[in-house]
Simulated assay, not measured.
Amino acid sequence: MKNHKWRMKEQAAFLRKTGELLERGYPLAEAIRSLTYQMKSRQKEDIAQALLHLREGHPFHQILHKLGFNQTLVGYVYFAEEHGSLADAFREGSTMILKRQDDVEKLKKLLVYPTILIAVTLFLFFFVEKVLLPQYILLFSSMNLKPNIFMRMVSFIGEASPFFVILLLLCMLLLLSYYFMTFRRLLPLKQRALIANIPFFGSFYRLFTTHYFSVQLSYLLAGGLSIHEALKVFEKYVQSPFYKQIGQEMQLFLMRGESFEAVLTHYDFFAGELSFIVKHGQENGKLSEELLFFSKHCLEKLENKTEKAFKIVQPILYSLIGLIIVSMYLAILLPMFQLLDGF
């Protein structure tokens, strides 16, 4: 299928509008056809091909996968086709993707200005360290004056910076080597477990994985499937090796006689509360509702943690930049006063 690149917001908007039309009673093909009048010319070509494949009987999630849609959105569509709540799932998936995209945009805005400041500051720093300070040090030595602490600090950072750069490059090389030689060869579940145990980032990853698993399982159970049948749906999701493997492995644990809440404790990439939510939902007979509520709680918690992270990162960045600028300023200004005192 020849396709054009869809931006993330365009993908989410398309899915959201499709869900809204489905809610109003439109069949899927008719809903998609109605949206073509709102599309750009390059997207109309993709939609025309999608409608052709849809009429030939291809699943909608496979069509979106061939169009290059985000894998998370494709997953929402796949599970929606299995449990039948297309409109709700389309809305849920587009809302989550838009929130993630907003976080990415915020992060970009947060980092652009400090990045420019850091670049300018580094340029000034090396100018001071390579041009001004050597002249000051030469002049101080001729007058038997000792360099002040800020001059020594700037000189030390300048001398040590090549070692820091080499160390950084070595770390990056080691990480890339580990990724290509070891990480990529691991099974999907092992990969996810390693990511979930990364300090700081792992907590975000666990919340996202728990949200996605909980909301899909909730919809499947609400559609009348048992846990075993729902896990078979995960197993058939060939576009995602991770969910295919987790569906297979969880079924094996259940066949060995383990309870579902006990099975969930085997996985580090799920939030610890998930097993308790499942146990409580099975006891009160409202497992699908409990999972849906918990998935929304995970998403809210993820948003709150992201906001807090932004509030922490920004002051730290500006503080570091300010410290470097003040050090340079004092390294230039204090020698002038020392020279005046020497005269």
Rank of each mutant, 00 (worst) to 15 (best):
I118V: 13
I246T: 01
K296G: 09
A196M: 01
Q282R: 11
I195A: 02
I97F: 02
G75L: 03
A89K: 06
L107P: 11
M96R: 06
V131F: 02
L51W: 04
M172V: 08
S41H: 12
S94L: 07
T36D: 12
M181L: 09
E10H: 00
K308V: 13
K232I: 06
G281S: 03
Q62T: 15
Q71S: 13
A29I: 10
K99W: 05
E235P: 08
N304H: 12
S141P: 07
L323V: 03
F253W: 01
S240E: 00
V154T: 04
P241K: 00
G19E: 05
C171Q: 01
I166P: 02
Q135C: 06
F127M: 04
G272R: 10
E20Y: 05
K17L: 05
Q314N: 04
E82H: 15
S85E: 07
L264D: 09
A271K: 06
K130W: 05
Q11G: 00
Q38G: 08
P241N: 02
L98T: 03
L51S: 03
Y212P: 01
M172Q: 07
L317A: 03
D341L: 05
L220Y: 09
K66H: 15
A12L: 01
F126M: 07
A309P: 13
F14C: 01
Q191D: 05
Y205E: 07
K305F: 10
F343A: 14
F208L: 04
L333Y: 09
L302A: 10
Y329V: 15
K66T: 14
E92T: 10
E129W: 08
L169E: 00
S141R: 08
Q314V: 15
L122A: 13
V233M: 08
L98W: 05
H53K: 09
E283F: 12
L287G: 01
T115E: 15
P147D: 06
L54Y: 00
K311N: 14
R7W: 06
Q191H: 03
P114L: 01
L175W: 09
E129C: 03
F293D: 15
G25T: 07
A271P: 00
L51N: 01
R206I: 00
F213K: 08
G272S: 14
L189A: 06
K44V: 15
G19L: 10
L117Y: 08
V128P: 02
S295C: 08
N70C: 13
K305G: 10
D102N: 09
E235L: 03
K301W: 12
V313Q: 11
Q239H: 11
H65N: 12
F204N: 04
T182N: 10
S214I: 07
L187N: 10
Q135G: 06
K40D: 10
D46C: 05
E92N: 08
L67F: 12
P147R: 07
L169P: 00
Q251M: 05
V77S: 13
I195E: 03
I97W: 01
F79V: 01
P315G: 02
Y178V: 09
E105V: 09
V74T: 11
L145D: 03
L292Q: 12
L292F: 09
L132R: 00
V165C: 14
M96D: 12
H61D: 11
L302R: 15
G25F: 14
V154P: 05
I312W: 15
Q314D: 11
M96P: 06
I116C: 14
K44S: 11
T36L: 09
E10Y: 00
M181T: 08
L138P: 06
F183T: 02
F201G: 04
